[in-house]
């Protein structure tokens, strides 16, 4: 069943990356990149358990925190962005 979860996560990563490349607006791309990061955390957990890595949960935890801070920073930057080009 871990193999099924890994295959589902790989398909999910591919679909999310398609949305990140073809997203019509900037917010779609931010959402897709955040979703990609969350799925990467899940992929590290499931794949690290399947491969018997030593301390995969620490890496996944740190990646989740970095993903949260990074998405928040990009989102706060583009919240000040108006469609006409000037900063408000």
């Amino acid at each position: 069943m871990i193999a099924a979860a890994i295959v589902a996560l790989l398909i999910t990563l591919a679909l999310t990356l398609i949305r990140a490349f073809m997203g019509p607006s900037i917010y779609d791309r931010i959402l897709a990149v955040n979703s990609f990061g969350t799925k990467t955390v899940l992929f590290i957990v499931v794949g690290g358990h399947a491969l018997g890595w030593f301390s995969y949960v620490d890496i996944a935890l740190m990646y989740a925190l970095v993903n949260f801070i990074g998405t928040l920073a990009v989102m706060r930057f583009f919240e000040q962005y108006s469609p006409h080009g000037e900063r408000s």
């Binding site: 099924a4 979860a5 999910t12």
Partner: peptide, 21 residues
Amino acid sequence: LLLGGFLVLTGAVGLLRLPDF
């Protein structure tokens, strides 16, 4: 694991297919 994989896959299909942000 099966249910979680199915839900994650459903979320990705919805992220790709739905019409609005």
